[in-house]
Simulated scan of single mutants.
Amino acid sequence: MQTRCYDGKKWQYEFKYEGKRYRKKGFRTKREANSAGLDKMAELKQGFEYEPNLTLYNYFKSWCETFKKPTISSKTYKSYASTIEHIKSHAIGSIKLKDITRYNYQEFINDFSKKHSKETIRKLNGYIRTSLDDAVYEGLISKNPTFKVKYRANNPNKTEESKYLDIKEYEKLKKHLKTKDNASSLVLFIMICTGCRISGALSLKKEFINHVKSEIYIDEHKNDSSPRYVSVSHEDMKFIQKSIDNLPLTIDGTIFGSLTINGVNKRLKVYCNNLGIKEITSHALRHSHCSYLLAKGVSIYYISKRLGHKNISVTTEVYSHLLEETYQEENDKAVSIINAM
């Protein structure tokens, strides 16, 4: 495998496996490129031992255990394990992979939709769609049966407004966190500044903090795009660095040691009540980060990169409700521009 710097700033990896060339660009350092290349090579070598009568259940279970379980947190994997069980308990699970049609899959989604919210359906469909994209790549099936699947939830989602703070609430919480000196508050502050998932904040190490460039290296073990450098302001970086220096040393080398998601969320609930703002979980800070930047006119393309999404379609799907909110403003702007010609 080779790694090289191709424009004086970015790095790429490149190698051949079984006569096919694999290459990926866009890494910030040689180390990142090399690590990603080794992961890709291991993924290709690991592979599957496929059987002619492989069912959807057996395929998806093997796919999850091979490609997901070793690379994501145990908490995140619970969602994949739940999807495995849903497939197993439905008739579609026993159908041979090569025989599944769009009709079979739509029937499965229709049944699942009867008792689940739109967000839950979206996640399950996304997991299965991605696994079957790989099946197409491997030549196991010629087409992905999840293509253009339709669904309508019978269970309501939480209101979109409950998933994030408005501009004033977000600013108010950030200001309040700067008055605190505990580990949970620092986790929340970093999430507000970077938009990272809580898993990325809790796994931070001191060497991930670059106070010279005012950047934080985030790796949430979510996808190939999740390892990334996120810029923060110099003022916020000073506060983060000072707060880290005041924390006790940990055994495992991380900044926050054994601090748990539950512990952080409990602290956040207290702060929300003290400030008189809606109660949210730490994950809502990620939604709030996106909402805040959109409201300030930042492009969805940049936000997608900042959040570490695999591609911009993920961002537009998850935050479609926020994009709808900016439509009228953008529409008025477009009309004004055309009128000025």
Rank of each mutant, 00 (worst) to 15 (best):
S73G: 11
I277G: 03
T120G: 13
K158T: 00
I100P: 03
R23C: 05
L249D: 14
H116L: 11
L323S: 00
D166K: 15
V270Y: 08
K296R: 13
S304I: 04
A295I: 10
V264C: 02
I277V: 01
R31W: 04
T179E: 14
I190K: 02
K333S: 08
G139T: 05
P156D: 06
E171L: 15
A42L: 07
H283E: 00
L268P: 02
Y105S: 00
L177I: 00
F208G: 06
G195I: 06
I192F: 02
E14S: 10
V136M: 13
S62T: 15
I190M: 09
K222E: 07
F189I: 03
E171S: 11
L294D: 07
K30T: 09
L249V: 12
R129S: 14
G253M: 01
E279F: 00
Q2M: 02
S142R: 14
S74A: 09
E330S: 06
Y271C: 11
D111R: 09
S185Q: 13
I167M: 12
A340V: 08
I218Y: 10
K213H: 14
I216V: 12
L188Q: 13
E235G: 12
K40E: 08
K10Y: 15
V187E: 12
T281Y: 02
G263E: 07
G26S: 06
I141M: 14
A135G: 14
E317R: 07
S231M: 10
K45V: 01
I121T: 01
T55N: 09
Y77T: 04
G47H: 02
F27S: 01
H90K: 11
I190V: 15
P70G: 08
Y127W: 09
T326C: 05
K180M: 10
S226I: 03
W63P: 00
D111E: 07
P156Q: 10
E107H: 08
Y137E: 14
S131M: 04
E169R: 11
M41T: 15
E14V: 06
S320I: 01
E51G: 10
K88L: 11
T316R: 03
Y229W: 08
N339K: 09
A36K: 11
R129P: 04
H234I: 06
R28D: 15
